[in-house]
Amino acid sequence: MQTNIMICGVGGQGIVLTSKLIAATAVSHDVPVMSAETIGMAQKGGSVFSFLRLGDGIASPMFPEGSADLLIGFEPSEAVRMFPYLKKGGTAIVNTHPIMPVTAALTGSDYDGADMLEYIRRNAEKAVFVDGDKAITDIGSPKVLNMVMLGAAVATGLLPFSLEEIEETMKATVKPQFAELNSKALRYGG
């Protein structure tokens, strides 16, 4: 059994940590795991993606287009950018809150994410939309968006782990004072 996951968004949204948490959970359950991600320009507001692969018989850390079981899009346009990687019948989980490109003020872009969400609605067979902005307001911290998205990913049942198993890894990874907040966010998403 192999599971291919594409996690994408904008630098600073906690994408890499999300990928690491799933990977670490895999390692602790003896599930082989590989990943590959963009590195370097992340802090400069660039597009960030992480390929994540779980299961036996995987050779490459990346997978071809049309082969992700799960696309976790932290931002509408970034979800569309990586949409070709989603396989037919795959599930897209998308945060509905758009992030303007840092150059938008200069170029006069009127991007608001609506077209992107429409596109995903029309083209994904299974799509879950997460109101990330509402979530972080409800939970009370802008830093937990990634946990909300991860909770939503676990809820699809496509990851070979339970929310409790992911939570256990999270607790072992983040600073103790943030564990409770992150648990809350995981459960909010799930």
Binding site: G46, S77, P101, V102, T103, A104, D115, M116
Partner: peptide, 9 residues
């Protein structure tokens, strides 16, 4: 897809 916003460094 619709025109995607570019995010240059």
């Amino acid at each position: 897809p619709p025109a995607l916003p570019v995010r240059p460094p």
